[in-house]
Amino acid sequence: MSYNPMELMIACAARLLEDGKTVAVGTGAPCAAAMLAQRTAAPNLVIFFEAGGVAPQLPTMPISVGDSRTFYKGAMATSMADVMETCQRGLMDYTFLGGAQIDAYGNLNSTVIGTDYKKPKVRLPGSGGANDLASFCWRILVVTSHDKRRFVDKLDFLTTPGYLTGPGAREAAGLPPGTGPYRVITDLAILGYHDETKRMEVISLHPGVTLDQVRQNTSFEVGLREPLQITKPPTEQELKILREEVDPHRYIIGRC
C-alpha cells in the first residue's frame, strides 16, 4: 500500500507511545499519532492537552489545544496549572513538540527568526507551553520536516530546552534529572541522541532514503547509531485507521 511522508511520520510517532503511559500533545501530527496509538498498540494511552483536557475520547481532530474536542467525553476538564503540575510531579511520560529550528542537542526555537530579539525578522508565537513540557516530561518527541533551514548549527533563540549545551547541562540549570529529548521523527529518518555526548544521531532511515541525504539536509554534524535500521513502513492496518478514523478529512495527512 502506498503512503505519503506524513503518514509514515505519524505511524512512527504512534509506535513510540506505549500502552498505559501518559502523553501531552498539541494539535496536528502529534495528536494524530496519539489517536493512532490508542487504536493500535496503546489503547490505554492517556492523552493530556495543556489547556486542561484530560483523557478525552477524541471524536475528531481538535483545531485548538483549548477547544472543546480536547475534553470530549474526557475523564476531567481542569486547568492548565493542573496539567503542567502533573508533568512537574513526574507523571508525564511523553510530550510532542515542534519548532522553526532545532539544534544538535534537541533545543528548539519557536520565538523569533533573526538574532535581534528586539527587532526580529520574523516574530513567531513564543514558547506557549513547550518550554514547560520540555522541562518536566520524561521523554521529548519532535515531529518535523527535515531541511537545513530547520536543522541548524545555532538557534536564533533557545525557546525550549533540549540537552542545552550537552551532558549534564539540564541538571546544572536545575531541570529535573532524567528528563530530555528522546526521538526526532522527520520525513527522512528517525533520530535519537547519543548516550554520552547527547548529540543527535540517526537511528533509522526511512525506506529509500540515504545517509547522505540526511547529512545534506542537516546543518550540524549528525552521528549514527550502529547498526543503522531501516524504518518499517506503515502497515495496511495503520493506514486504514489513520485515513478512515483519525483524519478522514485529511487535515494533517493531506499536508504533503
Binding site: 514558547s127 518550554n131 522541562s135 536545575g174
Partner: peptide, 10 residues
C-alpha cells in the same frame, strides 16, 4: 517557584 524556563533564552 517553578522548575520551568531554566537554562533557556526564554
Amino acid at each position: 517557584p517553578s522548575r520551568s524556563m531554566l537554562g533557556t533564552d526564554t
